[in-house]
């Protein structure tokens, strides 16, 4: 057997977890508004992805996409499981992405609270697209591919989301 040296360095899931996990939690936090939910969704994603991919398959992009979809699915669950007429019983956070949760250890960085609150009140699809476009700097085509929609839908949704934000901030 030939010595393989550094070329045979094996990337383990431990390495990937250390490198990727905190960033993914921050991404999920922006998409859900809840640090606790974010950590859960990211951990959940690792469990699922570890079952499907090898560590040396460079799963970083796949992990990010999986976290995005996990957050989006989480939003959809929160929205769908409401009986007609129950909206008034559901906290605004559930409707709009988690800001109404009792946020466990939610950071309070100060800053632009008005913008953050407005983001929390956006419908999940609009919020997700804004985070992908303006936090991850994903192209419209990549956002469309991630969410399984057309580029035109991403454009129009982005436009509506920004309009919503402006309306809430300027109100």
């Amino acid at each position: 057997m030939e010595p393989c040296g550094l070329a045979c360095e094996v990337v383990t899931w431990t390495d990937i977890y250390k490198a990727e996990r905190d960033g993914l939690v921050r991404l999920a936090y922006l998409m859900t508004g809840s640090p606790a939910v974010a950590e859960d969704l990211v951990q959940d994603t690792f469990v699922r992805v570890m079952a499907r991919l090898d560590a040396d398959a460079s799963p970083g992009a796949y992990l990010r996409r999986s976290v995005i979809n996990a957050c989006y699915s989480w939003h959809r669950r929160a929205w769908r499981e409401v009986r007609p007429g129950d909206d008034d019983r559901l906290g605004a956070g559930v409707r709009a992405g988690g800001s109404g949760f009792r946020a466990v250890a939610e950071p309070d960085p100060g800053g632009d609270v008005e913008m953050w609150d407005a983001l929390n009140r956006l419908p999940p699809r609009r919020r997700s697209i804004l985070v992908m476009r303006y936090y991850l700097d994903m192209s419209e085509a990549d956002v469309a591919a991630t969410l399984g929609c057309r580029v035109g839908t991403v454009k129009s949704t982005t436009h509506r989301a920004l309009a919503d934000l402006r309306k809430m901030i300027e109100r």
Binding site: R21, D22, V25, R26, L27, Y29, L30, P35, A38, E39, P107, D108, P109, G111, D112, M115, W116, L119, L130, V131, Y134, Y135, L162, L165
Partner: peptide, 14 residues
Amino acid sequence: LRRTLEERADSLQP
């Protein structure tokens, strides 16, 4: 919006 997202993300210590 970008500034808010970055501030919020940076402020979170998982």
